[in-house]
Design a protein around this nucleic acid. Sequence first.
DNA 1: TATAATTGATTGACCAGTCAATCAATTGGA
DNA 2: TCCAATTGATTGACTGGTCAATCAATTATA
Lengths: 216, 216
Amino acid sequence: MPPRDEHDYEQRRQQIIDGALEAFSAKGFDGTSNKDIAEAAKIGSPGLIYHYFKDKVDLLHQVILARLPLIALIDTASTQLDLDLPPEELLPELVGNVTKVLQSEVTIALMKVLLTEAIRNRRVAQMVDEVGPGRALRLLAGYLERQMDAGRLRRTDPHVAARILVGPIFAYALTRFIFEQAEATRIEPELMVRETVTSFLHSMAPEANSPAQAHH
Amino acid sequence: MPPRDEHDYEQRRQQIIDGALEAFSAKGFDGTSNKDIAEAAKIGSPGLIYHYFKDKVDLLHQVILARLPLIALIDTASTQLDLDLPPEELLPELVGNVTKVLQSEVTIALMKVLLTEAIRNRRVAQMVDEVGPGRALRLLAGYLERQMDAGRLRRTDPHVAARILVGPIFAYALTRFIFEQAEATRIEPELMVRETVTSFLHSMAPEANSPAQAHH
DNA sequence: TATAATTGATTGACCAGTCAATCAATTGGA
DNA sequence: TCCAATTGATTGACTGGTCAATCAATTATA
């Protein structure tokens, strides 16, 4: 029962997980056959998958668990940041980190898998939300509210504010990595981050004497 | 070959298209069997599908073509709008329309289908992009640049600006309709639209004397 | 040699698409 | 008015193929 060599065993497991992530992100979970996985993972036989994983769904779970840290990193980083730092210092750093994570091939692949699975499966959507976007947005909203209390930001619904800050980055990532828009590819991530944060800080400045606004 | 009754024929066709959209958005194209479609469409036999459509892929195409207007509406509306109207008048209307379209069940279902197909298929991604997000963002960027030229908006990369405006709405829709976040559901669409546009206009005001900004 | 790792064959379920047969409505001839 | 021919609509059985999963047999390792 005990594996021949713990290290070899783990290495093989990761090899299959890597191949599966590649295949899932390219063809989707349903569209990926065990043969596809075996080829992407460079193992000799689809049957071998069942030596390391209970079934195909278990493999999907393990892929997510193994690569989730890349996404969880977003908010663990945020918990390590000093929540009393003023937005002008904390936000560029924070959003910059997010953008750095978005640059990784593996992150994009995982996001493709998670997004498609979440779209079709309420349970998956909730799971993903709790460790990813939901948790991150809640933490960010908490920070923004704290800064509003401190008078460093204009008072608004912090959840709305959080989405105003994060939304542009997300839209950028989507148009760049999923739709591969030429315009999006031309925009450097650093520029996008800088403009987004600058724009947010400007519009959320506390001294805001009511700006140009819709009137009718 | 010609249908016995044009009206009945078209009605049946739409019935199958509706069922297919429902099934595809719930289970994905690959995950949906013809039996699923027949049940969702309340027709007696999967075989009947082939009386109205060439094959499953053709059915997907017809679903998209039949329901695309809901999305194309976004930018046809934008072409009908007066591009010389100042942003304070045009943008609330424009973004408000988008949000109205996002409220429809059918739009959400179609977006789920299109998004997941686009994620896995470069060709689909380009197609969808051209009629949807890509076209809309390009038009918006064009309008913003025009307004920058007129001195009514601060000068920046118009493609960046377009994403800063649209991003928050998209992030809101995603967290509300896909991830079904409690916080997002609590935010009324009208509030989100108003805040997004206000924030955008404020940060893009031409008289902007450099605001609080990242410094180090 | 003993045990884990790996393979390839196999199984049973399911699927997309085909097809022959039936059904029901319309048509038209007497 | 009647009824038979015609035609499109619909069904359910069927086919070739694929898939996830199992398993017996083989290989490699310690």
